[in-house]
Design a binder for these strands. Structure first.
Lengths: 341, 341
DNA sequence: TATCAACACGAAACCGTTTGCGTAGTTATA
DNA sequence: TATAACTACGCAAACGGTTTCGTGTTGATA
């Protein structure tokens, strides 16, 4: 077992001081040619690499980004992760990912754990429980310590920090308008709980489109689905409301409903159209393929990482109150066979 | 901005020494009641938390696990990640996740980056390029330094370390046997390249089942699919080989083929059966639902994390040569509508 | 009253770096 | 030849903790 070599080891071996070694490896002008060459050769031979932890302690930055998301077995978050990781890596950062698992407590614990020096900044999407409780003290705690924070997807107005979101309202509006435009009159909205900030925006867009298209707003057409086992609810709903289009706030619900509708003998998209949020694998490979709203997770991720790293690396200079920004990414409607084109 | 407080700050404020503060916070017997209470109260008031980096430097462990996987936008890896994260968290570890993106170079760079003190051990799945090149020097580098490593899913015999895999051969065998048992004679195998170690095992199981069931082994029935754009290949293949069953090494390929077959008018599962590796969302929500091989990613993840952490934490004691183990997880065939049950 | 534990705390080393500053030794200048 | 100016390097502090060991004070014991 060839243990890692340190500056001290090199210094002892070469009979020079630690600082000489350090400077020699940095090609400092202070050190003479011969010594530099000797040290560099030795370091290369023994494959010397500076210890990240020691450097972190000294420089007070870790080159680590903390990422806290509700779930990872989830197409959208997965693409965001990829976007973050790729960008962060290109700037020499690594990402420590924690799953809050939709739990407020885990979110808090994870943040506290990482906030004690492990990371230079956070990127996070609020868990549903946190949104329900509207308790953002853990976020405040972190920002007050001067740790940069970027919120994405599910954010909150109560915390001042950089944010990157998609225009949920606008794209929901467009989706509904598209279906209305192809003659649909009874357009349903499948939601997953009003406490999700994104759901609120989507509902708003849905409603606005209805009004703009001169369609009746029927509260009964807005279906609130609990997290799991929606079948029992969707099935009778489909029966009784003579709906001819559905906008679903997530992919699974959309596919689920579409499968159910097909089994009931509805023709898609003629009898009933479907559009779902998240343009994942399910949408692509469904039969018929599902018209979907692409949230551009990769892009969101890389933008979030960019904003965060800029903030981290500019922290030294600026002393004045920072001015935060919210980047809005345009979602895209990917038209497939579940809608009339 | 309320900066983080240090031991030194407390010591200065309370006019005691740093070591007294440190001991008092640990409730050391050495320190008197009064001082302890005073220090603890002060620490609580100012929300003192020890700096993780400083502790890491001193204790020579980071409580971080490095995870390197080819991709994260991928159901199986995603579940493994969740399994690792959950278990690791329960033992006070965080996970730093890097994506090798199927690239040998990124895999090497990421490992080197993390190996310089950032992590206590690695969990990884080899990238396809690494398997192709059969170049495992970066792994050797790491293990020789005494950094624990656990390989999962795509492993190699060339590196001695702990491993956790599923019995790919056996489950492929069972899958084929099941289809043969329901009368299928011309069973195809859709693979994605022989350099993947898992594919080799699956092919072996497929072949063995064919022999055991007295079916003809026809090389033409083994289809090697390039990573993307398989449509052009699958379509004519389906036409010309009068196959009546397919075992696909991944979910997407299986769904893809199934959709194609349906469009061609095949009845599923009567005319043609399908089984795919990875029991993800696609399998569940496909029409018809796809019989799939569950790889139990969560379980693999938590076992891998367990093995790694045990290895990390036992390192101090043992000095003798460690004895490595390979845990084999049993895969499960999830029967759905794409096969005759 | 001298001796000695027990108690309560501080000094200092250490983990692996970085970096400002001091200083021998050499060379150039006056 | 005395002085100035470099050159090339080492010392030591600092980052924020942990931990070993030493020591001054107190009270009990002989």
């Amino acid at each position: 077992m060839r243990k890692k070599i340190t500056l001290k080891d090199i210094a002892r071996e070469l009979e020079v001081s630690i600082s000489t070694v350090s400077k020699a490896l940095k090609n400092s002008e202070e050190i003479g040619r011969d010594t530099k060459e000797k040290v560099q050769a030795f370091a290369k031979l023994y494959n010397y690499r500076p210890n990240n932890i020691a450097i972190s302690l000294k420089n007070k930055h870790t080159k680590n980004i903390g990422l806290i998301i509700p779930d990872i077995v989830h197409y959208f978050f997965t693409t965001v992760f990829r976007g973050i990781e790729k960008y962060a890596n290109s700037r020499g950062y690594n990402v420590i990912a924690c799953l809050s698992d939709a739990s407020f407590d885990k979110e808090v614990i994870n943040m506290e754990m990482l906030a004690n020096g492990s990371i230079d900044g956070f990127i996070m999407a609020l868990s549903s429980e946190t949104q329900e409780k509207s308790d953002y003290n853990h976020l405040r705690e972190v920002t007050e310590q001067g740790i940069p924070l970027v919120l994405f997807d599910s954010t909150t107005d109560e915390i001042e920090c950089d944010k990157v979101v998609i225009d949920d309202e606008q794209i929901a509006y467009e989706a509904v308008k598209k279906m209305a435009g192809s003659g649909k009159k009874r357009i349903a909205l499948f939601s997953t709980g009003a406490h999700y900030n994104v759901n609120k925006a989507r509902t708003k867009g849905y409603l606005r489109a209805l009004v703009d298209c001169g369609l009746e707003v029927d509260e009964k057409l807005i279906l609130e689905l609990p997290p799991e086992k929606n079948i029992d609810i969707i099935d009778p709903f489909l029966e009784s409301n003579s709906i001819d289009a559905v906008l679903a706030v997530n992919e699974i619900t959309a596919i689920h409903a579409m499968n159910l509708a097909r089994k009931k003998g509805f023709r898609i998209p003629e009898d009933i159209s479907f559009i779902g949020f998240t343009d994942g694998l399910l949408s692509k490979y469904a039969q018929p393929s599902l018209t979907a709203i692409a949230q551009h997770g990769d892009q969101m991720g890389s933008i979030a990482a960019h904003m965060l790293i800029e903030r981290i690396e500019s922290e030294n200079e600026e002393e004045e109150e920072p001015v935060f920004q919210t980047k809005v990414i345009e979602a895209t409607l990917i038209e497939r066979d579940s809608t009339i084109n």
